[in-house]
């Protein structure tokens, strides 16, 4: 073994101990019953109406927060990418700054803002408006997820748009394209790698999310992440938890495969 290869040693140990082994364990648990015999029942358990509805809820909420993030981030990233002044980095920083604060603190802060007697309703009440009942609903989870994962959408979009050569925009204008055609024929297709990266970066953590649903959903809304978490922590049924994890993993792989088919630059692949 050369010295160069030796340097990879620690990473191999890391990968073996913290990636390969756990995955193998999940596979093992997922395909065995509690008495150790081989079974498909943990996988098939996804067909259980409760699990199926949890998966459905997860998909709907994850898709929702992904779409909202995309709609909010795209114009912002586009505007920022066109500017060259120093203010751009300040704005980007403002969106990234919350990521430096502990995830749990952010969610708990949102809980306080959205609560029935919380800050938001306090402000609304001050203006004589009806209070909103957002907390412990699907809306609250959606808001929480969007808020938490928004930076993961903005950054790849911004990067992709910064990579678009300004000359291409000039070339399109030179050939007679107005603003709309420049956007639809040049900017949009060339920013697709960023769109796809952003979707992957937001959708994957969203779909397996359970902490936000716990705190902002008040355990009223059961996502697939909650189901899996409960199987491990409450019911102590690691086999079922692993089986459902495998199904979720399979679902994520499936959606990534579809995404990557449309990702010409394969930029999204770097992310998983």
């Amino acid at each position: 073994m050369t010295k160069r290869k030796m340097l990879a040693g620690p990473y191999l140990v890391w990968a073996a101990g913290f990636i390969i082994l756990p995955l193998f364990m999940i596979l093992l648990y997922g395909f065995t019953s509690e008495d150790g015999g081989f079974t498909f029942s943990n996988i098939a358990a996804i067909a259980d109406p409760i699990h199926l509805s949890a998966l459905g809820q997860s998909i709907v909420i994850a898709a929702g927060s992904t779409v909202i993030s995309l709609l909010v981030s795209y114009p912002l990233a586009y505007i920022l990418s066109k500017r060259t002044s120093g203010k751009t980095s300040t704005v980007i920083m403002m969106f990234i700054l919350p990521m430096w604060i502990n995830f749990m603190l952010r969610v708990l802060a949102l809980q306080m803002i959205l609560a029935n007697t919380g800050i938001l309703n306090g402000i609304l009440g001050f203006f004589g408006l009806e209070p909103l009942h957002i907390l412990y609903s699907r809306k609250a989870i959606l808001i929480g997820m969007t808020y938490d994962y928004l930076p993961f959408m903005i950054l790849p979009l911004y990067n992709a748009m910064c990579k678009i050569d300004r000359d291409l925009v000039d070339a399109a204008a030179d050939l007679g394209a107005g603003r709309f055609i420049i956007f639809s024929k040049v900017i949009l297709p060339l920013s697709m790698p960023g769109v796809i990266s952003g979707i992957i970066m937001v959708f994957i953590p969203s779909i397996s999310e359970f902490a936000i649903a716990d705190i902002l959903g008040g355990s009223k809304i059961l996502l697939i992440g909650n189901v899996i978490e409960q199987e491990f922590n409450l019911t102590n049924n690691w086999n079922l938890g692993s089986g459902l994890s495998l199904v979720l993993m399979l679902f994520i792989f499936g959606s990534m495969a579809v995404m990557n088919k449309t990702d010409a630059d394969q930029e999204g692949q770097l992310l998983w």
Binding site: D170, A171, G176, A177
Partner: peptide
């Protein structure tokens, strides 16, 4: 604006889409 001018440019870096 450039899109209304009856001239076309060949850019230094080609700028093909």
């Amino acid at each position: 604006p450039p899109n209304k001018r009856n001239l076309n440019t060949v850019f230094q870096k080609y700028s093909l889409f």
